[in-house]
Design a protein around this nucleic acid. Sequence first.
DNA 1: GTTACTTCCTAATGTCTCTAGGAAAGAGGC
DNA 2: GCCTCTTTCCTAGAGACATTAGGAAGTAAC
Lengths: 197, 197
Amino acid sequence: MARAGLTADRVTLTGAELADEVGLDHVTMSAVARRLGVKDASLYVHVRNLEDLRGRIALLAADEKTIRIAEATAGRAGKDALVAYANAYRDYAHAHPGRYTATQIPMQIDPELLARAPGPRRAIELTYSMLRAYHLDEPDLTDAVRMMRSMLHGFINLEAAGGFAHARPVEDSWVRCLDALHALLENWHAHREGDPA
Amino acid sequence: MARAGLTADRVTLTGAELADEVGLDHVTMSAVARRLGVKDASLYVHVRNLEDLRGRIALLAADEKTIRIAEATAGRAGKDALVAYANAYRDYAHAHPGRYTATQIPMQIDPELLARAPGPRRAIELTYSMLRAYHLDEPDLTDAVRMMRSMLHGFINLEAAGGFAHARPVEDSWVRCLDALHALLENWHAHREGDPA
DNA sequence: GTTACTTCCTAATGTCTCTAGGAAAGAGGC
DNA sequence: GCCTCTTTCCTAGAGACATTAGGAAGTAAC
């Protein structure tokens, strides 16, 4: 009998495809094995268990997403870069809903595996360096990064969960939110604690 | 043999407690039945299936969260109300992580059940009426509501997922984000499309 | 106390995760 | 080619869970 030629990466990729098609929580060992034409038990050579597989999918997604963002923002600065960043982020989530979901689960990933994946670390660097154009110093920089991430992440999440039921097109709100975010970053230092009401 | 006195609400509440203790995706029919001292099959009289149970937990959480927010914002206005709203929101998520998680799943809830639950609708009304103090007209109002929800939801989510690894205390960033949000809402009309860089 | 409804149980099926142990494919040395 | 070592994949099987069908025993109305 010919070998199926499995590797951890191939198992992960198959899981990721499945996640995009049927949702992350329908990604089972059985389903992945079925799709690969292999018995369930065979997967355990390459992947520790279901949780490990999910972690690997999350890492794959983080890497892919980071690459998209890096490409989109390359050579851009200021609001241009912000919009490119945000759109690349959102586009990835739309194109790969299952993978994107995987990035959100409370990370209980094998630390060794995590250390080898460039995605998460690079994503942070990318974000900080992009926001550096707004001339913020610590701790403002970190606060701004957190705010920006919260907004993007939250928007995409709510959108995916069907949380925007109003008639107003989501696309229009998105553009408006990015405008607002840009304005906010530019005037970050102006609205500290006790600014006039 | 005495009856256990089950009702849909009691099953839901037990599921919610379990969710807060061990995480939403460890809420199983078996586990809920065990805690209630009842066999798995007995639950199916009160709850259609696992998905239905999860939906009910989500609705319960939405109701509870809305009540907390309503209490917190009662009699307040402007930034005071905004901060009270946001803190009540976040406090609820901290106090009931499992229930809060339930509110985030793409809602595939029994429409009839949804119609009877006051939470979701009331939450929207509450938000709109709070933001009305910032004197925004449609479609700005809806955009602002969406931005605010995105930010709060995203921040709490990232926080829960351990996404804020930096040394800067999360609490401080939170306060700063609320300041920024308030400033943003006050000057919402000022930063439209082509504002000066 | 009879009737009817509801609640809860037993029993059973199918799916899924994960482990143990075996067979066979492929690589390298001779 | 043949032997050996490693890795890959399989068979078998235990244990958890979701879900359905059908039966027995409480409870309420009359």
